[in-house]
Design a protein around this nucleic acid. Sequence first.
DNA 1: CCCATGACCACAA
DNA 2: ATTGTGGCCATGG
Length: 131
Amino acid sequence: MATSKKTTHKTERLRTVSLSGKRHESFFEAVYAVVRQIPKGRVTSYGAIANCLGIKLSARMVGWAMNAAHDPKLKVPAHRVVNRNGLLTGKFHFATETRMEELLKKEGVRVEDDKVVDFAEKFWDPARAED
DNA sequence: CCCATGACCACAA
DNA sequence: ATTGTGGCCATGG
């Protein structure tokens, strides 16, 4: 079969992201919407968010979206998003190295060695308890 | 248009 | 358990 991959196809898909039957203006907004719903004292993973959006995308893009979420106006608690390992992989992208960890600790999330303690308990699945 | 990178994830050895 | 590779989509040079 044809091995021609058209980049135009991808861009088109991004414009209309179908998540839970709702159409968002952009992929980023969709991600923000999910992250904002993460309860205080809980965390989730990039993959879980991507999964909630319809898996078609990729966990990488979720992280990329966070990269653009630095605007405080967006009110995106990026510190509650860690990787599937419970590791604070994005801590280096915050104002300071310890900022993410401190924010989590303030919410009652214990962090040890850049990793969320009792990650399984603190984990919040957006596709499961999306309220 | 081709190439390289990225706050990831899953699988194979 | 650790390491390597592929896939995923977007963005920038």
